[in-house]
Amino acid sequence: MVMRFDGYEQSRNSAEAGHCSAATRAAVRSALEAAAEFDSTQIIVSILGDFVVLEGFVRCRGDDELAVDVAAAVVGPAYVHNRLICRGAIRNPH
């Protein structure tokens, strides 16, 4: 289960919304670890202002999009920056 932090607006940062950056980072990290669809062990989650930044490596194309979707479920799609590098081929949809 992924808990989303509601209350993100452009004029309010995560601390003003009642969530410190450490809690936001931990929530995104936990959600990534819980996602069984891909390996998130080489993903670094950091906070830059109101934004969650995903950096590091994923095994194949498509896993980066899954990681962004997981993070977006926590903080909202407008607050996720993807800096992930794909090491392999395109993910097999089957």
Rank of each mutant, 00 (worst) to 15 (best):
D39V: 00
L84V: 09
A73K: 15
R25F: 04
A34V: 04
A23K: 07
R87C: 07
E33V: 11
R87T: 01
P93R: 04
S40R: 02
L32H: 03
A23M: 08
D69V: 01
A67G: 03
A35Q: 12
V58C: 04
R61W: 14
L54D: 04
D50E: 08
S11F: 13
A22E: 12
T41K: 10
R61N: 08
N92T: 02
D64M: 00
V28S: 08
R91Y: 01
G76R: 09
C86Y: 00
A67H: 02
C60G: 13
A22N: 08
F51I: 03
E9A: 11
N82Y: 08
A35S: 14
G7T: 06
D39H: 05
T24A: 09
G88E: 04
Y8R: 10
E37T: 04
V45P: 08
V52A: 06
A73L: 13
V80R: 04
F38S: 07
V68G: 03
A15G: 00
S46H: 01
V53I: 13
G49Q: 13
I47S: 02
T41A: 11
C86W: 00
S11W: 15
V58E: 09
A26D: 12
V2T: 15
T24G: 01
A22Y: 06
C86I: 03
A34N: 14
A35E: 14
R4F: 07
P77R: 08
M3V: 14
A73T: 05
A36P: 07
V80A: 11
A73Q: 15
A22C: 01
F51L: 11
R29S: 14
S21N: 11
L54Q: 07
N92V: 00
A73D: 15
A73H: 09
F57S: 07
E55C: 02
A78G: 08
C60Q: 13
A35L: 09
L48Q: 15
Q10D: 14
R59Q: 13
D64Y: 00
G56Y: 07
I47W: 02
G62F: 14
V75K: 05
I47K: 10
A78L: 14
F5W: 13
V68C: 13
T24I: 15
L84A: 01
S11Y: 12
S11V: 09
D63K: 01
V45I: 07
R61H: 13
V80S: 04
